[in-house]
C-alpha cells in the first residue's frame, strides 16, 4: 500500500503556460491507495481507497464506489459514489450516486441525488464565496 503524505501545494499555476485548461491533470488513486493529509491540486482527482484530510482541486473530484473518505472536499463538479464523511463544496455540481453515503454539510450550486443515496447534513445551495478555491 502506498501511503502518500501529500503536502502538495502543487498549484502549477497557469501563468507559466505549462498547464492548459483543456488538458487537465488527473490525480488518480487505486482501490488500495491511501492519501492522508492535505492535497491542493490544479486538476482533477479520482479518489479511491482511503482518503483522510483535505482535498481542494480546481477541477473535478470523483469518489469511487469502494472508497472511504474522511475529508473536506472542494472541487468544481463533485461526484460521490462511495462513503464520504466531511464537508463537501461543489462550485458547480454535486452528484450523489445510488450507493453514495455522505455525512457532512454540503455547499453546492447544483445538486443531484440519485435514489438510494444516503445524505445526512446541512445543504446550502447557491451563493457561496469563491475565495479559498485554490484557483
Amino acid at each position: 500500500m502506498d501511503v502518500q503524505e501529500a503536502v502538495a501545494e502543487g498549484t502549477a499555476s497557469a501563468e507559466n503556460g505549462e498547464v492548459k485548461r483543456d488538458a487537465r491533470k488527473q490525480f488518480s488513486m487505486g482501490p488500495g491507495d491511501i492519501l492522508e493529509g492535505k492535497l491542493i491540486y490544479d486538476g482533477s482527482v479520482h479518489a479511491d481507497g482511503r482518503v483522510e484530510g483535505e482535498v481542494r482541486v480546481t477541477g473535478n473530484i470523483d469518489v469511487a464506489s469502494g472508497a472511504s473518505v474522511k475529508a473536506l472536499l472542494e472541487g468544481g463538479n463533485v461526484t460521490l459514489k462511495g462513503q464520504v464523511e466531511g464537508m463537501v463544496t461543489a462550485r458547480d455540481k454535486l452528484t450523489l450516486g445510488k450507493n453514495a453515503r455522505l455525512s457532512g454539510d454540503i455547499q453546492v450550486r447544483r445538486l443531484q441525488i440519485d435514489d438510494g443515496a444516503t445524505l445526512n447534513g446541512h445543504v446550502r445551495m447557491g451563493d457561496f464565496e469563491h475565495q479559498a478555491s485554490g484557483q
Partner: peptide, 18 residues
C-alpha cells in the same frame, strides 16, 4: 428515509435520513 433530487432543483435544509 429515501431522497431523490433532480439536477436543476433548488434544495436546501438540514437533511436527516434513516
Amino acid at each position: 428515509a429515501r431522497l431523490t433530487v433532480a439536477d436543476g432543483a433548488t434544495f436546501s435544509g438540514k437533511v436527516s435520513m434513516g
